[in-house]
């Protein structure tokens, strides 16, 4: 995780498969305030394209994305 960006929430969806990581990310973001930041950790490969696409469509800012050893991390600002 980026050391410069403090997340308001951490959502660990490792072990969950499509579509649960996307649904949980979207539902968590919906409940957050504008400007707040979430750190999502997933290991389902379908998140690689879908979470960035979801952010773009919903107008959320994808601040950072990383893939390391099969784990995907996303830092998203609502």
């Amino acid at each position: 995780m980026s050391t410069e960006i403090k997340a308001d929430k951490v959502l660990d969806v490792k072990g969950l498969v499509c579509p649960r990581p996307m649904v949980m990310t979207m539902n968590t973001l919906k409940a957050m305030d504008k400007g707040q930041v979430i750190h999502v950790i997933a290991n389902d490969s379908s998140t690689k394209h879908s979470i960035p696409a979801l952010c773009e469509r919903a107008g959320y800012k994808l601040v950072e994305t990383k893939e390391e050893g099969g784990t995907f991390t996303f830092i998203i600002q609502k």
Partner: peptide, 11 residues
Amino acid sequence: FRMSVGLTILE
């Protein structure tokens, strides 16, 4: 069921 859950993503 899996598909139904996914279809909720866009409200």
